[in-house]
Amino acid sequence: MPPPSQTDGALCAAFLEGDKNAFGELMRRHQQTVFRLVRRYAATPDEARDLTQRAFLQAFEAASRTLPRLAAAPGEIPFKAWLLRIAINLGKNQVRDGARWARAPLEAVEASAERPPDAQAALERAESEALTRRAVTALPKRQREVFTLRIDGGLPFAEIAETLGISEGNAKSHFHYAVKRLRDEVRTLSVVPNVPKGQS
């Protein structure tokens, strides 16, 4: 079992030299985050699992192509950044190819254990959630990436910036725009009283 202090890059290099334990450790470290990112775009848990697996395989593939080049110019493989970017892209492609996004949030809502006691309020709440989640998948690329890495992945802005190769201030700015855009969408489409129309 590799020591937990080992960096992702070191684990990745060890795995590419045939260390199966390094592979397992990398997966255990990141599979929850990747799964949380892709489940927004998946219709079923199995689909989310499949997307998670594909994200890992593609990241390992990218690492195996890059490793020989790093021998010439030493550096660390930015494995997590690749993995998360691949996961987001796979998720978006899933939506584009299958147009399945409409089902995913509703199923997720059904699976949710927390429900307001009032049926009408619950219905309105579910509608607003579905609208907002749909609006998230329709955000401009960079805003969507930053927003989902923050909300679904739970990453701090510094790590989001590192993942996407932008500055931390830029990441915050994209998130800020995304929130304002979503707020406007919700105001236009929703009947939720929490976001009243005409208020700044």
Binding site: K20, M27, F35, R39, A108, A111, I151, D152
Partner: peptide, 30 residues
């Protein structure tokens, strides 16, 4: 409000179960 509406619920038991054995399956696929 927006972040609460946009956030997905915690992974269900079915979803958590789907992740079990994923490293082994992915290793086999690789």
């Amino acid at each position: 409000v927006v972040t609460e509406l946009a956030a997905l619920p915690e992974p269900s038991a079915t979803e958590r179960a789907a992740l079990e054995g994923l490293p082994e399956a992915t290793w086999a696929e690789w």
